[in-house]
Amino acid sequence: MKLADKSCALEEAVSRIGVGATVMLSGFGVPGTPFALIRELVRQGPKNLTIIKNDANEKGMGVDHLLAAGMVKKLIVTHIGLNARAMAMMNAGDIEVEFCAQGMLAERVRAGGAGLMGFVTDIGLGTELAEGKTRVELGGREGVLESALRADVALIHAARADTFGNLCYAAAARNFSPLMAMAADRVVAEAEVVVAPGGIVPEEVHTPGPFVDHVVPLGALGEEYGVVRRA
């Protein structure tokens, strides 16, 4: 038996993202953000995108390029405080922003990836986050219905991949990656190192290959991936 080779060029991997697509982006701040895939998406330029990501990165990085290029219709995020452009565009009504509690975003994505339609939680009860959500009573407790999230495409950053799409994440770069890698119709993983099948020990696989459609080998990492020097 042999596992398929899903290696793919950057341009081709991103080329199926059309106007109006919903796109999940891995990452929490810099760690895990697929900067190379995002740059290629900006180059190809489909507009009216709904972006699902923990945050909007910082000015001049990642999601900010999509915002600057006017490609974003809506952000589904937990926090955008480090990106002044995202805040300004939201306040001016240029983009729609849906805020989720961070664990709720994770769980909605996981639910989508697990083939579920949603789940019931008490998170946000008594706050404006619960407004407009369906109330549910379950086992004598009150909760709200949270809907699952799926995307047309998930763009994921991995530290290591094999050509079949088994993925490993580094340190705190894991964050939303394993969840989003389950929750999209098409999953594209960029990887710092790509090895042949067998090059990753089965016990150390974080995302199993069957979830992944394309593996894009990264060359030298761009500046955006590096340590951010702060004053």
Binding site: V77, T78, H79, I80, G81, M87, M90, V97, F99, A101, Q102, G103, M104, D122, I123, G124, T127, L129
Partner: peptide
């Protein structure tokens, strides 16, 4: 000021 609550809601509630 409305940057989003990040993980604060669940930390405070749970």
């Amino acid at each position: 000021f409305s940057p989003g609550a990040g993980g604060g809601i669940e930390l405070a509630q749970k």
